[in-house]
Design a protein around this nucleic acid. Sequence first.
DNA 1: CTAGAAGCTGGAGCACGCTCCAGGCAAACA
DNA 2: TGTTTGCCTGGAGCGTGCTCCAGCTTCTAG
Lengths: 132, 132
Amino acid sequence: MRMTETQPLLAETLAISEVATLTGLSQDTLRYYEKSGLISPVGRSAGGQRRYSRADISWIELLLRLRDTGMSVADMQRFAEMHHHGDTTIPERLDLLRRHRDRLAERIRGLQLNGQALDAKIAYYEDFLEES
Amino acid sequence: MRMTETQPLLAETLAISEVATLTGLSQDTLRYYEKSGLISPVGRSAGGQRRYSRADISWIELLLRLRDTGMSVADMQRFAEMHHHGDTTIPERLDLLRRHRDRLAERIRGLQLNGQALDAKIAYYEDFLEES
DNA sequence: CTAGAAGCTGGAGCACGCTCCAGGCAAACA
DNA sequence: TGTTTGCCTGGAGCGTGCTCCAGCTTCTAG
């Protein structure tokens, strides 16, 4: 078979620097997330360096969505653990996602209202300047 | 030269506990905000206890709006300092508010997009459950 | 084969935004 | 009047989410 050449499967994996560039997370953060259980232990090269698979990448992308919509690391840990326990946890995961989604909707509504109040303040300042 | 008490003005002021209840901030946070310059030194009773005026309250309400829309304490400090320097800083303040408003609009848009992606994920899980 | 770049681990450190004392004076109620 | 409740200050401490580092191993280009 092949000798020193990398096989197709291996060619599909990414080094940590590439994942960092791809996701915008720092290498330190990627390692920190793995250490904290947000990312399940990722594949390794013969020498022990991380090799991320496509599945790892899409999992990280989901994590980022959760994080960017305000989910805490603690909640992401719970979610990751469910994920790790397989399909039987899908109802729980669904539940968690729905709750999160609802809180997000509320938060967006709140931000919109605050935005309107800020607009009013801005208009007030604009009027003030116009009159002087 | 306002050392008199039992004036209508005094009747209009609030103790820190009342402001805490009113705004949802803790007494410690109110003192911390004052210490950090977010709130300019508030009036005191003869004995040295804080007495918040209507103007103090509405300033705090503006601060809360800024905070709740994601402004950092550092940025609020700058804003507070401008405010403290009087009307000549209105153009700067307007500028800061507009920038903040724009960032907020962007953030809301981003949250909405992430929300849609979460909806898709939720739908995926729902389908999965339905088929089993 | 080798130099330099990239990655590893465990653990310390940091920025932010509060939060919680201790020890003491102020205010309100009975 | 007393005593209970409230507020004061300065400063230490904390939870979160990273970020940095030392000392060492692995990879890769030439």
